[in-house]
Design a protein around this nucleic acid. Sequence first.
DNA 1: AAACACCCCTGCGGGC
DNA 2: TGCCCGCAGGGGTGTT
Length: 271
Amino acid sequence: MPELPEVEVSRLGIAPYLQGEHITQLIVRDRRLRWPVEEALSDAVGQKVVAVTRRAKYLLIELQNTGRIILHLGMSGKLRVLDAAVPPVKHDHIDIVLASGKCLRFNDPRRFGACLWQAPGQDIPAQLSHLGPEPLTTDFAADRLTRLSRGKQVAVKNFIMDNAVVVGVGNIYANEALFMAGIDPRRKAGNVSAKRYERLTVAIKDVLAKAIQQGGTTLKDFTQTDGNPGYFKQSLNVYGRAGKPCMVCETPIKSLTIGQRNTFYCPQCQR
DNA sequence: AAACACCCCTGCGGGC
DNA sequence: TGCCCGCAGGGGTGTT
């Protein structure tokens, strides 16, 4: 479900309900997520939430004692803010209950998501310690793509989906950004010129920022925390449009598999 | 080292 | 209506 824009939309939706609130209870109904949910997570009870931040596709619930609850939505994870008394439904695995009477409820049918616990004073979990720059900051610039890609045989699409290169670019937005930049997704990363990486960098920033503005992309089941869908699907140029005419030149969009993932591109516009 | 394939898991849509 | 198959937004792990 979620790429960076959907995670950011979720963050914006939940933050007002969590910030400044005390956690009164943690309910874990199923610990079998991407990694087993640690018992120590309940150490967060009694703590005040000072902020909800994001790193890559991880949401960080920052606690006053410097502890953190770290959530990842995986492929099918969803967050809702509800009255704590609302009965849980299937796949509602975790409730973070707040003094306000609300709770943050994590639902994840496929259980590819995660809930990690970083105790006060502990290092950030290893999953977050080797991540590349955030795409929407100035830390992510074209020269980085050019420098890291020299000599690389990997397809440029896989290259920009590598979290060590830049975080938060998943399958939808990798396809969209490559279309916007006019680059064939199969092209070897090392064979893309510095000039074209300039265009790709702009495209990545642009597509992610616009998707956040429009509330993310709803494909099957993504909803904003208010239950409304995201509207960016209407702006997709290539993703999921195999056989349909290119928005620019009307050539049928092609699909193929790159790195075990479905890839869409315009054979005319992307070289 | 780099480039892949594979796996975790459930639900859903399409074809028959 | 029902069954079976393929596929899905992520990403860590293990093999060449």
